[in-house]
């Protein structure tokens, strides 16, 4: 291709150059690197470099014109109740979202994949639509639904069952419930899609064999479907863990910067508050480094636990 276009120009030096260029491009040794280069460059510039700098900054006190190294003092300051609160909130949030966002989408996917269920396409679409809304917009609506007045939708509904109105946005349990439900409502459809895709790949013969062995529907689910979905489960749970630890918006939409008793404070929210709002970039960076370590360790443990490192 390259050679034939350059012959049209008929200038010898150019042909030589372009043939070097084409050899370079078609070389089996070099071409792969050329193709991955955009990713490598953007990774180095936008992720790796900032990461190193953030690590460096976590040992500094950063003020305009006065950057001083303060040793481990930023890390020492991390040992405070607010950070523990943020870490606890985030961890609880991760546990709930991971469990809910793996179990329910898997079940829904199995239902949606079954021929017995009617209006399957409608349900698929309906469950996926929330993923298209912005968290901010959804959050505004959720905040109204879970308002503190008796007339708020959620309080009307529980009032129907004789339960007294709840100050949703002021209690630590109800606050966590709000964040988890907003996240689950949004991501349910996406995870269902992953599981549906996984289900398409389960070989039909396995079910036939199970039928011949006289397996019940439940046994088929347990011994055929779930083991076959293992790669999807690993993928979905890993993503949910990482996204859970990085969570910020679900909390921000309900309480903006500060929630009563810090019930909605997450680790990333704490980075934002300390690093940007309080102008303490060094401390913010230290929180970020710790968060990175936490995510790294938990992801490795989780992948090891589910056996993702083993060669099948």
């Amino acid at each position: 291709m390259e050679g034939s276009t350059s012959t049209n120009t008929n200038t010898p030096p150019k042909r030589v150059r372009s043939s070097i260029w084409s050899r370079f491009l078609t070389s089996k040794k070099i071409a792969p690197y050329v193709f991955v280069m955009p990713f490598i460059i953007s990774f180095l510039a936008l992720f790796f470099y900032p990461m190193i700098q953030a690590f460096n900054m976590s040992f500094q006190q950063v003020l305009p014109g006065q950057v001083t190294y303060v040793g481990l003092s930023n890390y020492e300051r991390l040992l405070n109740p607010t950070f523990y609160r943020a870490l606890t909130n985030t961890s609880v949030y991760v546990v709930f979202t991971v469990v809910i966002l793996v179990v329910f989408p898997a079940l829904f996917a199995v239902f949606l994949n079954s021929r017995i269920v009617k209006f399957r396409n409608f349900f698929k679409a309906a469950l996926f639509v929330p993923a298209l809304t912005s968290v901010i917009v959804a959050g505004v609506i959720f905040r109204m639904i879970f308002g503190e007045t008796e007339a708020a939708v959620a309080n009307e509904i529980i009032g129907f069952f004789g339960i007294a109105p709840i100050d949703w946005q002021y209690g630590s349990i109800s606050g966590m419930f709000l964040m988890v439900i907003l996240c689950c409502w949004r991501w349910m459809g996406v995870n269902i899609l992953y599981f549906l895709a996984g289900l398409q790949n389960v070989p039909h013969e396995l079910y036939e064999a199970a039928d011949i062995d006289g397996a019940s529907a439940f046994q088929k689910l347990l011994y055929v479907t779930i083991p076959s979905l293992k790669p999807v489960i690993i993928f979905v749970s890993t993503i949910s863990i990482i996204n859970g630890f990085r969570m910020f918006e679900e909390s921000y939409v309900f309480w903006e910067g500060s929630s009563p008793g810090n019930i909605g404070l997450t680790v990333v929210g704490y980075i934002y508050r300390e690093g940007v709002s309080q102008n303490d970039l060094g401390f913010g960076a230290a929180i970020g480094v710790v968060l990175m370590l936490v995510i790294f360790i938990i992801s490795v443990l989780q992948l090891k636990f589910v056996g993702a490192f083993k060669e099948d």
Partner: peptide, 29 residues
């Protein structure tokens, strides 16, 4: 150099913050 320091941390901080363009309730991130 200072500029780089800031540009280093900012993307990681704001990546989470740039979720959307503010609803009508005065929220902005």
């Amino acid at each position: 150099m200072k500029k780089w320091l800031v540009s280093a941390l900012v993307p990681s901080l704001l990546m989470a913050a740039c979720g959307g363009n503010g609803g009508d309730g005065g929220e902005e991130a």
